[in-house]
């Protein structure tokens, strides 16, 4: 019964993306406060507070180290929230997808639009953090703008797995498991707060399989300055996670809705 056909993405995905943008625009005030408030809190609280004791990390001020990590992790959490709570709401209680599916659009288009929207929200949160970090004087020049497409990609990377969770969820409680078991551990071990090479070696090997590690590795030098270690690998891993998880999400949502 399972329909494994490879997804086809068409222009219709943009209609779904635009729908979300129009809803977002209605609540733009609170959304922007959230976008700026949370990272500002982290950077000011942790960056200054902890930075006072830590001083430098990996050859840069702790505030710069932290800001360049938070920009990646914030893309992760933003896209994850959107891909779970919002997607589930539209798919199940609100039955927005049911309505859309009566038009020529298909599940492939809907999830592609949702994913683009998750990327867009991740990019918006990234821009907010860049602005806060620049005001705090820890952004290293204009090349840091490259971090914006990077966080957009990171948004896509994490949107896919979140949508898989939505496709499997019976209710909202289910999402707590994913946060506790997947997102929070990545937040802690993937180099946001301290360099990965301080971890035991066997753990490092595992940590390099996690997408957030690659997101941080890419974003940090772009924001805080320094050499990109292995940009091609980083991008390939992020794109790979995005593509595979999108495909799985499409198959699972088909199984859920096309019965």
């Amino acid at each position: 019964m399972t329909n494994w056909r490879l997804p086809t993405v068409r222009r219709g995905a943009l209609a779904v993306w635009r729908r979300n943008l129009l809803v977002w625009r209605k609540l733009v005030g609170p959304a922007i406060v959230m976008n700026f408030g949370e990272p500002a809190l982290y950077l000011l609280g942790l960056g200054f507070g902890l930075g006072h004791f830590v001083g430098e990390m990996s050859g840069m001020p702790y505030l710069a180290f932290l800001a360049s990590g938070i920009i990646a992790s914030s893309a992760m959490t933003t896209a994850t929230f959107e891909g779970m709570y919002s997607v589930f709401t539209r798919m199940v209680p609100q039955r927005t997808y049911e309505a859309i599916l009566a038009s020529p659009l298909e599940i492939d288009d809907i999830l592609a639009g949702e994913m683009l929207w998750c990327g867009t929200k991740a990019a918006m949160s990234g821009i907010a953090i860049l602005i806060v970090a620049a005001l705090l004087g820890v952004v290293d020049g204009w090349q840091s703008l490259w971090a914006i497409p990077v966080v957009f990609l990171v948004g896509l990377t994490f949107a896919g797995p979140a949508m898989i969770m939505s496709a499997l969820a019976r209710n909202y409680d289910f999402f707590s498991y994913y946060f506790v078991l997947v997102i929070t551990p990545m937040f802690i071990v993937c180099g946001v707060f301290y360099p990965i090479d301080t971890l035991p070696e066997i753990v490092q090997g595992f940590v390099y399989l996690l997408p957030l590690t690659h997101a941080v590795e890419l974003a940090r030098p772009l924001v805080a300055g320094g050499e990109l270690a292995r940009p091609v690998t980083n991008v390939v891993v992020l794109v790979g996670y995005a593509a595979v998880s999108y495909y799985i999400a499409v198959v699972l949502v088909r199984r859920r809705l096309m019965v």
Binding site: G12, V16, R18, R19, L22, T96, E98, A99, P104
Partner: peptide
Amino acid sequence: VVPQADNLDPDFTVAENLAIYASYFG
């Protein structure tokens, strides 16, 4: 298509519901 149970988009007004739906048809 008029489904068995209404599935209007609660995030939009009456007119916006029609406009958004038009966009799905291109």
